[in-house]
Design a protein around this nucleic acid. Structure first.
Lengths: 214, 214
DNA sequence: AAACACAAGGGTGAATTTACCCTTTTTTCA
DNA sequence: TGAAAAAAGGGTAAATTCACCCTTGTGTTT
């Protein structure tokens, strides 16, 4: 009897992680050897058990204390040989891209069927990666609009944040210790770069791109 | 041996629902008799099996096709005797309130421990309800700020949506087939009611209260 | 029928926002 | 080190936004 593949689950949804363990243990060739409820305790474990023999890590993206992205960054820095599949309920593009650029070998939504889930696990362990069509599509899309991305300077970001309040430009100028005319320059430059015509457009842009949070 | 309590799971996260079934079946007094992957197929099932004997329904909130809230509304209208616990990953206040006002007997986050989860199930089946402190707190909070809620008229909502674009008031007036002066009246009245001073404030209000979506 | 609420709209003036074109100083870099 | 780019700021005019106060017509209540 060949040894089972060892899996670690990192997920704060205890209901989910405990249930998932049962599911995985019901697969013939796999066994869950550990579960952690956030990135912090998992990293602590890795630090104290440098030689842990683990074949695959299932890492939730949305967690308290230390989230999936930060955890993934730590793994990339310190234990890049570990194979990780990101697990998440949402298909937010930005998040998926971040997980992958930080070294996740796969990205599975929690609404995938157990069959596909198993395929993904097997694929990552054997071939080293597993990406659904959804994720591949996003990587292509990202490659595309990376080219036409505007990059905002630090001061512009600060200005935008002020612009998303009820302050007048004059007030913003004084808060940023700049002349109103300079602010006028920022505004005009941004209208141009972002292809907008009014301060309303600026606010909508800022919110859409999470420069300010609502 | 007394009969087990019959439970139905409605959740599109197949990984979760299949795993959760294993967990529940491991409890002595409970068994999962059915699983559905969205509200629509569940309702169809209920319509075709009017006399189903089920003790508790675990209803996910975020689902495609027909979400938890809509499903809950249908249940309230058609099968109000059914006991439902809402399950969700997020603790968004608005959603929780909606589920409860539509008759959910409990609201559990998916990151609760299996122990608390079991407590909740038992409580709803035996006592008829189960609410955590978090949820109770929200109900109190809601009761409070219900009193100071502004109610917007249909035309005002339409105006607000236009105001959240780069159109000028004049353009908005023409689109709404009203005089610019009337629009000016709407604006002024809203500034007053919402305690804001500029159109920026109006946009922020609209987004915060989901009148417009970003 | 008087009183009242309310929706639509008018007038005016001040403040703010936007557009366009310009100068000076500092940084960058080839 | 000299040219080019970027950052800060100035002037002016037009468009838009905002504040305040007022009129008319249409229902509704009592």
């Amino acid at each position: 009897m060949k040894p089972k593949n060892k899996i670690i689950i990192v997920d704060d949804h205890l209901l989910f992680s405990q249930s998932l363990e049962l599911l995985i243990n019901s697969f013939k060739d796999f066994e869950v050897i550990n579960r952690f409820e956030n990135g912090k305790v998992f990293i602590t474990y890795l630090q104290e058990n440098v030689d842990t023999n683990v074949d695959l890590i299932l890492l939730d993206v949305n967690m308290p204390v230390l989230d999936g992205i930060s955890t993934m960054k730590w793994i990339k820095e310190n234990r890049p040989e570990l194979k990780v599949i990101a697990l998440s309920v949402n298909d937010d593009e930005e998040v998926i891209i971040k997980m992958i650029t930080n070294g996740a070998k796969g990205y599975l939504l929690k609404d995938t069927s157990p069959e596909i889930f198993k395929d993904g696990i097997v694929s990552v362990i054997e071939k080293g990666f597993y990406f659904t069509e959804l994720v591949s599509g996003m990587l292509v899309k990202k490659a595309n609009d990376d080219s036409k991305k505007v990059n905002l300077k630090e001061k512009e970001i600060v200005f935008i944040k002020h612009a998303c309040t009820e302050k007048t430009y004059k007030e913003i100028a004084s808060e940023m210790c700049l002349s109103p005319k300079t602010i006028d320059g920022y505004r005009e430059c941004l209208f141009d770069k972002l292809e907008i015509k009014t301060r309303i457009g600026l606010v909508l842009y800022a919110i859409k791109h999470k420069i300010v949070l609502v």
